[in-house]
């Protein structure tokens, strides 16, 4: 039981790390990473809850485990979409930048 408690506390600390990353990141990619670290911590707390719920011959409660699997996938979807938006934004900025530089010179 103490193992589950340890991982639950680690999950809480990871959420703290993720929040710090979200607040201090200088770029959008840093915020995406912070969001993912935060999510990992929340899932780990779920894992501790699942491990505590071991019963009926299962070594962990399967319901929170299934929810975490769904959660990991949804977090990946959000990350992939955010990354694609970020790359598109930077290509648009790269195209716009030379035009701006030209205007300043004239």
């Amino acid at each position: 039981m103490t193992g589950a408690l340890l991982f639950g506390l680690a999950g809480a600390a990871l959420v703290g790390c993720g929040v710090y990353g979200l607040l201090t990141a200088s770029g959008a990619l840093g915020r995406i990473l912070g969001f993912n670290v935060l999510g990992g911590g929340v899932f780990l707390i779920f894992g501790a809850v699942a491990r505590r719920g071991a019963a009926a011959g299962f070594s962990a409660d399967p319901v929170p485990q299934a929810l975490v699997i769904t959660g990991i996938v949804v977090a990946f979807c959000a990350t992939a979409l955010a990354v694609a938006l970020l790359v598109r934004l930077s290509t648009m900025e790269a195209r716009a930048a030379p035009a701006d530089a030209g205007e300043k010179e004239t």
Binding site: V49, R52, F58, A60, D61, V63
Partner: peptide
């Protein structure tokens, strides 16, 4: 700890 393991089983 509350659990749904018994229901699943």
């Amino acid at each position: 700890a509350p659990t749904r393991a018994a229901d699943v089983a």
